[in-house]
Design a binder for these strands. Structure first.
Lengths: 201, 201
DNA sequence: ACAAATATCGAGTGTGTACTCGAATTTAGA
DNA sequence: TCTAAATTCGAGTACACACTCGATATTTGT
C-alpha cells in the first residue's frame, strides 16, 4: 500500500486540482476584497473562475471554508510579518512592506475590509484576525524590546504600547489610503513615527 | 395658509412620529454595529423596535436611507470633531473623547465596521466617510498648524501628515480595542503620540 | 363629529443566497 | 482497457432579503 490503511481506497486529487483550487482562491480574494465576505457570493466567484457554483463547492465545502483558504493564502503570498532577514532593521522592513503594499491595493482592501467585518457577530474570520494581531503585537514588541536593550529606543517608550500603536497607525493609514490614495503617503507616515521611536545608531 | 402653496394639502407627521423614528434609528444603530450594513436586516431592526417591517419602511423608504439616518444621528449624539471650547487644547479634547468612547463600545463598533465596509463597491455610506475624513484631516491639520505658529510643534513634523496619522492611530487602536479590550489602552496610546508631537508650554 | 391625512400591517413579489442530490463525464492507476 | 475514484454540473431546496400593494386602523384639524 502507498498510504494509510488497506480499508481506505483513496486516490487523492487529480493533476489539475491544485491549479484549480488556486484559481478559485484568487478569484475569491478579489470578490471578498470588492464586496466583503457577506457581500460577496459563491456564484460570482464561480463565474469569475469559469466554473459552476456546484463545482466550486466540490473544492471548498462551504463559504466560510473558502474565506479561511483566502486568508491563509494571503499569508503565504505577502512576505508577512517576521519574514525579514536578521540584518534588516525593523524600520526598513516596515517601510519596504508599506511601499510594496502600494502596488497591490486589492490585497490591502481585502485585509482592511475583512478585518473590520470580522468584528461582527459570528464572523468566520474572527479567530484568524485575533490570532494575527496577537502574533504581530508580540513580534513588534520583541523588536522594540531588543532596540531598547541597545539603548536605541526613545526613553519613556513602552515596547508593548509602541507595538500596538505601530500596527494601529499602519492599519488606519491604509484605510485612508484606500479611500483616497492621493490624500496620504503611507510609507512616509510610518517613517515619521518610527523616526521618532527609534534613535539613530 | 400655514405652509407652501394651496395645492399641497399636507398635515405633516403625527405626534409620536419623532420618537418612533428615533427608536428605529437607535435599533438600527445596534443592528448595523453587530452585523454590519450588509449583514443587518430590516426585519431584525423592526423586531427590535416592535413593529412590522412594512411600518419601518414607512419611516425610512429604503435600507440605505436608514443607514444614512443612523450615521447622521451618530454625529449629533457624539460630541464629535470640532465641538471643543476654544480654551481646551487639542490633546485634552482627543483624550477626553477617547476615554468617553470606552464607555460606548457599540458606537465605536458601528464606526469601525461601517467605515471599512464603506470601502466596498457601491456602498451607501461611502460619501459619508470620505467627507468625514476630509473634514477631520482639515480640522486637525489646522490645529497642528496653529500649534506650530506658537512654536509648540516638534520640529520637522508636517501638520497634514500628523493630522492623517493621528486619525489613523485612533482608528487602528479602536479596532484592536474592539477585538480585545484588555490588549490595549486607547487613550494612553493617543497620549503617547500627542506628547511626542506637541511640546509643553 | 367628520373627513382627510397619516400610520400600521398582512400578504405577496421577485430576487438572491448557500448548499444538496444524483447523474454524467473525465481522469488515473492496474 | 477497464474500473474506480475524482470531477463537473443541471436541477432543485429552503430560506432570507428588500421592497410593493392595498386594505384597515388611528390620529388630527376643523
Amino acid at each position: 500500500m502507498t498510504t494509510s490503511s488497506a480499508s481506505a481506497p483513496k486516490r487523492g486529487p487529480y493533476a489539475k486540482s491544485k491549479q484549480r483550487r488556486e484559481n478559485i482562491v484568487i478569484a475569491a480574494h478579489e470578490v471578498f476584497a470588492e464586496h466583503g465576505y457577506k457581500g460577496g457570493s459563491l456564484q460570482v466567484v464561480a463565474d469569475r473562475v469559469g466554473m459552476s457554483q456546484t463545482s466550486l463547492l466540490h473544492y471548498f465545502p462551504s463559504k466560510s471554508a473558502l474565506l479561511l483558504a483566502v486568508l491563509n493564502w494571503r499569508d503565504t503570498v505577502t512576505g508577512d510579518g517576521g519574514s525579514r532577514s536578521p540584518e534588516e532593521s525593523l524600520a526598513s522592513a516596515v517601510i519596504r512592506q508599506a511601499r510594496f503594499n502600494e502596488t497591490v491595493p486589492g490585497v490591502v482592501e481585502l485585509y482592511t475590509v475583512l478585518c473590520a467585518e470580522s468584528l461582527t457577530a459570528k464572523h468566520p474570520g474572527r479567530d484568524y484576525f485575533t490570532q494575527r494581531y496577537e502574533g504581530l503585537r508580540r513580534s513588534y514588541s520583541r523588536s522594540f524590546t531588543a532596540l531598547a536593550r541597545e539603548g536605541r529606543l526613545r526613553s519613556g517608550v513602552d515596547p508593548e504600547r509602541a507595538a500596538a500603536s505601530l500596527i494601529a497607525l499602519w492599519d488606519g493609514i491604509q484605510t485612508q489610503w484606500l479611500m483616497d490614495p492621493d490624500s496620504v503617503d503611507m510609507a512616509q507616515c510610518l517613517q515619521d513615527y518610527l523616526d521618532f521611536l527609534i534613535l539613530p545608531e
